[in-house]
Amino acid sequence: MGGDSRRRSRLVLGELATGVASYSRMTAPPLHPDFRPTANWDALRLWAVMLARLRRFFAERGFIEVQTPLLSADTVIDRHLDPFRVEDAGRTLWLQTSPEFAMKRLLASGAPAIYQVTRSFRQGECGPLHNPEFTIVEWYRPGDGLEEGMILLSDLAEAMLGRGPAERVSYRDAFILHAGVDPLAADVASLRRAAAEHGVATPESLDALDRDGWFDLLLVGLVAPHLGRTQPTILFDYPPSQAALARVRPDTQPVAERFELFVDGIELANGYHELTDAAELRRRNAEANHRREQDGKMPLPEESRLLAAMDRGLPSAAGVALGFDRLVMLAAGAKTLAAVTPFPWDRA
């Protein structure tokens, strides 16, 4: 036993020796010194081919491509989205976490079906499937509801990936099947129990009463890995607390008319039958900011031109945002965004 442990402890020392400088100096992750791209030319060519295919898909359906500012005085207020803040001559601007607000202002101003391919920015989101700056595709079609929104998303997934149309599973059915708990009926204690029973690794700091935190934990740990395995999967009808900017359908058990696309267990797109009620958005903004403050995060400006637009009247519409880099990654059979984008965060 002794000899064996000797050998192993030496490996540890070796690792330290090749590791990083003293801990006190380590604050930011190091930048990669290599000037070259992480993706090869086959991957970058596929990226371009898929972008052309995507534009054709929307053009064939009469969508107009638009471009809205990356830097705006308004920003989405989400408990878990952190925008980059930019100062200019005493004015605070935000790099957009998605083009949602600006595109809805266009909708309120009489836009037909519109789409956009642009860059979006989310602070702190960095990993194999995340880059703080990424390419987003976002589209809106006035007159669409949940059903039409899901059909269009399924068509797009089929056209772009060639893995068939999307199957649909409600959030409730998926949780009952994979986590053994009914998300619409369950109290937070049942969610905690489901996590424990399935051995889901849980942060000690997760508030025992944070219902949405437990939903996210179960979604990531137990549900999502099963979605989109044989064909793309659309998860729909979310718990009302997960509505974000979707409208809530007042059934006997109210659900948010929100839908998400999953392929190979990876979240690809998020859509809503859009909330059009300005008073409700003000309430959700205040709630999101309250949560942000509890989480120790900076509150974000609650008034926006989107609210002004909604006060005037936002037409009923469905809208979807899709991570384009992830779409290309899946089409390429790659495991990381870095394999299909030239300069990820540490080389940016």
């Binding site: 989400d78 878990h80 989205l81 702190g124 989101e125 960095c126 990993g127 194999p128 499937l129 995340h130 690794a201 942060p203 997760l206 949405d212 935190g213 939903f215 996210d216 934990l217 979604l219 990531v220 999502a224 997960q242 974000a244 998400e260 979240e267 998020n270 945002a321 991570g323």
Partner: peptide, 14 residues
Amino acid sequence: CNFVKPGKGQALYK
């Protein structure tokens, strides 16, 4: 260290 996060959800570091 793996970063996982639902688009609109809580970020987790595994």
